[in-house]
């Protein structure tokens, strides 16, 4: 029976048995099974991940010692801001409060990281024009970062609404004061989010200048009864840059 198998096959079979057998022996008897255990590898990865050092302690920890500051901060605009957003990673400080001190930004260039005017920032977010806003003075001379309120009520709308002011300054409406169209109560200047200024709520308001027969000579005129009658004017025309958008 064995003799009938061609010689070549017998010889190759031996080689293959050695190769495959060697592999099997290596796989199941020589190498430790832990090498093949994906589950063990994953568990050790997770353990290694979890063992990594925490650098940011988390804002709840800070209040434990700095109770007074935390109380002040809780009432101001920065109430949702984590301490470590400004002070940097402080886990080391919590372990050794006396020798490791966290960073305390005092320079003028720090606050503008968030508060410099940038056209991509959401409207309504308080932003200043760094070059004209009290140049060279560190922010903390006037503002308490833990309770940031304007030291004096801003005189001009542009102090906060720099973007709108810049747009309006080059528009046809450049010479119209903000207060012509908006009434901003004193409360808005202190709590800008809670008390909003008014917006013109009738078509007739714009019509004072833009309706046919108005006394304003330089304003373009429309027929209020036929021109987009179902909408308020500013729903289509951007009043701070009229005629462009």
């Amino acid at each position: 029976m064995f003799e009938r198998i061609p010689e070549q096959i017998r010889r190759l079979a031996i080689v293959f048995v050695i190769v495959i057998g060697g592999t099997v022996v290596l796989r199941y008897f020589v190498l430790p099974p832990s090498l093949f255990e994906t589950r063990l590898h994953r568990e050790s990865t997770i353990q290694r991940e979890v063992a990594k050092q925490v650098k940011f302690a988390g804002t709840t920890v800070c209040g434990g010692c700095h109770e007074d500051t935390a109380t002040v901060k809780r009432k101001g605009f920065h109430k949702n801001l984590s301490c470590e957003s400004c002070h940097g990673p402080a886990a080391m400080h919590t372990e050794d409060p006396m020798t490791v001190k966290p960073f305390a930004p005092r320079k003028r260039k720090f606050c503008p990281l968030c508060h410099e005017y940038d056209p991509s920032r959401p409207t309504g977010f308080p932003q200043i024009n760094v070059t004209i806003h009290n140049p060279l003075k560190p922010c903390i001379t006037c503002h308490n970062p833990h309770h940031p309120e304007p030291p004096t009520v801003p005189r001009e709308c542009s102090a906060c609404h720099a973007g709108i002011a810049r747009t309006k300054a080059v528009s046809h409406h450049a010479l119209i004061a903000c207060t012509t169209c908006h009434r901003a109560s004193r409360k808005h200047k202190v709590s800008p989010r809670r008390v909003k200024p008014t917006k013109p709520d009738t078509r007739e308001f714009c019509g004072k200048c833009h309706r046919e027969g108005s006394k304003r000579k330089d304003a373009p005129k429309i027929d209020l009864s036929t021109h987009g009658e179902r909408y308020l004017c500013w729903e289509c025309h951007y009043p701070h840059m009229p005629g462009v958008a």
Partner: peptide
């Protein structure tokens, strides 16, 4: 040749 010796026509 894996110590092969057979060169017969059949092989």
């Amino acid at each position: 040749s894996l110590f092969s010796r057979d060169v017969s026509e059949r092989a």
